[in-house]
């Protein structure tokens, strides 16, 4: 498991968990970032991440993205 922030652009990953349990992680979960969901990393260049979840694109600030852990080794 590793944070989605280390994933390179163009990678397809599966959400393992969203940490925290507070308002922020609730928001992420309600946008569809729940365990088992496929996400593609469209943009990851130091600033906010651009993720594609289903047919939607979301921008996540670095701090937010750090809460999202995905399957795989770093």
């Amino acid at each position: 498991m590793c944070p989605i922030t280390v994933m390179p652009e163009g990678s397809e990953v599966t959400v393992a968990r969203v940490t925290g349990g507070g308002e922020a992680s609730k928001r992420l979960s309600e946008l569809g970032l729940v365990p088992g969901v496929q996400v593609s990393v469209v943009q990851n260049g130091g600033g906010p991440l651009l993720l594609k979840v289903g047919d939607s694109r979301f921008a996540l600030g670095q701090g937010m993205a750090l809460k999202v852990f995905v399957d795989g080794a770093c």
Partner: peptide, 9 residues
């Protein structure tokens, strides 16, 4: 707070 925003098509 951190950015969370949908980018519309």
């Amino acid at each position: 707070s951190q950015l969370v925003m949908e980018l519309p098509p």
